[in-house]
């Protein structure tokens, strides 16, 4: 049985890779999407069998509510609003990666080693992506028209980043108490918001693509924490493909990724030139 299930994950991972490759060419793009979809369904079915019936009611409820909400929104969102749709759903993925780490850490049962380090790091990346994608969504939706900057922003952002890293190290060192974990996730949310606020609307596609890659990486890292090879492979492939795609998009738009993302870490005068 175990052999069949592991084979299911392998098939899912291969389908995801082949599907993404198909999507990089106009002729095969639609077929590629179907392959990714089949891979996803296989992975979910395997997981259903593998996990037994633990919290099955909660699980099905969450799957149905989430699936229906996303399908309804995804169908009715106007074509011109597609980028913010991607931002929204990408943020959800990042948030999910963060929440997975939270489940594993909140019991304090996680022991040291590389999986814990990667899981904690993935939580930071995923949560930053969650909050940052949320800001990107509100900007593209037109709810926030102007980039938000203030003179002390580079210092504040630097401080929040340092606090997040320090708290992450504390969690890895074994301080898996609720207040520490809460502060860690709060710092990650704050960082995601603060870094994205000063970036102008024209740069948002590049930012969304970057957060997309970040979520992929976060998913891969949580895959190490959960010992789940399908997540590791798919997440890493998306992380690398997303990073390259971000660079290609930035080049096509004559932007520098570092300039775009660094807006929150520069003085407002300098940032204004690129915004």
């Amino acid at each position: 049985m175990s052999f069949v299930l592991e084979t299911g994950y392998l098939v899912a991972a291969v389908l995801l890779i082949l599907g993404l490759r198909g999507m990089s060419s106009p002729r095969t793009a639609h077929r590629g999407l179907t392959w990714v979809g089949i891979g996803m369904v296989v992975a979910v079915l395997v997981t259903f069998i593998r996990t037994g019936a633990g919290n099955i009611g909660l699980m099905l409820t969450a799957l149905v509510i989430g699936g229906v909400l996303a399908a309804v929104y995804g169908r009715q969102v106007p074509m011109t609003a597609m980028p913010q749709g991607v931002a929204l759903f990408n943020g959800m993925g990042g948030g999910a990666a963060g929440a997975i780490a939270a489940v594993e850490l909140v019991g304090g049962a996680t022991v040291g080693g590389a999986p814990l380090v990667l899981g904690v790091l993935g939580a930071l990346i995923g949560t930053v992506s969650f909050a940052g994608s949320g800001v990107a969504f509100t900007k593209l939706q037109g709810w926030m028209r102007r980039p938000v900057r203030f003179p002390a922003m580079p210092m504040v952002n630097g401080a929040v980043a340092l606090v997040a890293v320090a708290l992450g190290i504390a969690v890895i060192a074994g301080a898996q108490m609720d207040p520490v974990l809460g502060a860690y996730f709060a710092a990650a949310v704050a960082l995601g918001i603060l870094v994205t606020l000063p970036i102008g609307g024209a740069d948002m596609p590049v930012v969304i693509s970057l957060y997309n890659a970040a979520t992929g990486l976060a998913v891969a890292f949580e895959g190490y924490l959960l010992n789940n090879p399908a997540m590791v492979i798919a997440g890493t492939v998306v992380g690398a493909a997303g990073t390259l795609l971000t660079l290609l998009m930035a080049r096509a738009m004559h932007r520098s990724v570092f300039q775009v993302v660094g807006a929150g870490f520069r003085a407002p005068e300098a940032a204004a030139e690129t915004g």
Partner: peptide, 21 residues
């Protein structure tokens, strides 16, 4: 393709199910 990659990291649902289980 960005959107497709976004869909592909939806594989995170597998990990979420494991965590909840």
């Amino acid at each position: 393709l960005m959107s497709g990659a976004n869909f592909a990291h939806g594989i995170v649902v597998v990990g979420a199910m494991v965590a909840l289980s």
